[in-house]
Simulated scan of single mutants.
Amino acid sequence: MEIDILIEAPGWSETGLETLAADAFAATLAELGLDPGRCAVSLLACDDARIAGLNAEFRGKPTPTNVLSWPAEERGADSPGGMPRLPGPGGAGPPEELGDIALALETCVREAEEAGRPLEHHLAHLLVHGLLHLLGFDHETDADATLMEGLETRVLARLGVPDPY
């Protein structure tokens, strides 16, 4: 999988983000039967101030959040709880751009501490969550949330991360 990581905030270099992202994305794609060699993602590792600005600009919420996702293509399911339209097998040529994900370090650290989880486990969960959003999964309805959370739990189990729910 092609992952373009931009680290904007100090502290990210100590998290092992590159390895966490590669492992989380590979496990997610494997769970869905997708070829990692055909997919590309951009990842922004920023601080709370930067993500608050992005959250304000794109969601109208001027506060920090843990993860934001911008899918390159609308893939949402036709009905609540249904599978989104996942990328096809592809052919020759460059990997398909799935979209962009941003993570905010301070919020991620605080949430992991509050939940009593290792930061690496929390980051793995957020990376899986963000990638699932890029692939068209959502949690707007109970049926959608059930599908997405079930996938997250299975992917995290592949990574040796306990169920966060």
Rank of each mutant, 00 (worst) to 15 (best):
R59N: 15
M83W: 14
G88I: 12
D163G: 09
L135P: 07
G130Q: 02
W70A: 13
M83C: 04
S42E: 15
H129G: 01
H121D: 15
E2W: 11
P64F: 00
L147I: 11
A102L: 10
S42W: 08
E149R: 13
L127I: 13
A24T: 06
E149Q: 12
E140C: 07
G81D: 11
N66K: 09
R117I: 02
T107C: 03
L68W: 09
A30H: 11
A40N: 01
G16M: 05
T146F: 05
A157C: 05
I51V: 13
L147N: 01
L123C: 09
G60H: 04
V155M: 03
V109I: 11
P64M: 04
G136F: 02
N55V: 05
A40M: 05
D144W: 06
G130T: 05
A49D: 12
P164D: 12
A102E: 00
R50F: 02
S69Y: 10
L86E: 03
L6H: 13
G81S: 07
P164N: 08
A92V: 10
D47G: 15
A21I: 06
W12H: 07
L20M: 10
G99P: 06
L131M: 10
L147A: 08
R75Q: 09
H129N: 06
D48W: 01
H125A: 14
L86D: 03
E96R: 15
L123Y: 09
M83E: 14
A143C: 08
E2Y: 07
A22G: 12
E14L: 13
L34T: 07
S69W: 09
P89E: 14
V128N: 02
E57A: 14
D78Q: 14
M148P: 00
G116D: 06
A56Y: 03
G37I: 04
P89C: 01
C108G: 11
S69N: 04
T63K: 14
L44Q: 10
T15D: 02
L86Y: 05
G93E: 09
D4K: 13
A145D: 12
F137L: 12
D142W: 09
H139Q: 12
A49T: 11
A102K: 01
T65R: 03
E14R: 15
H121V: 01
G160T: 06
T65S: 09
V128K: 04
L127E: 07
I7M: 14
H121P: 00
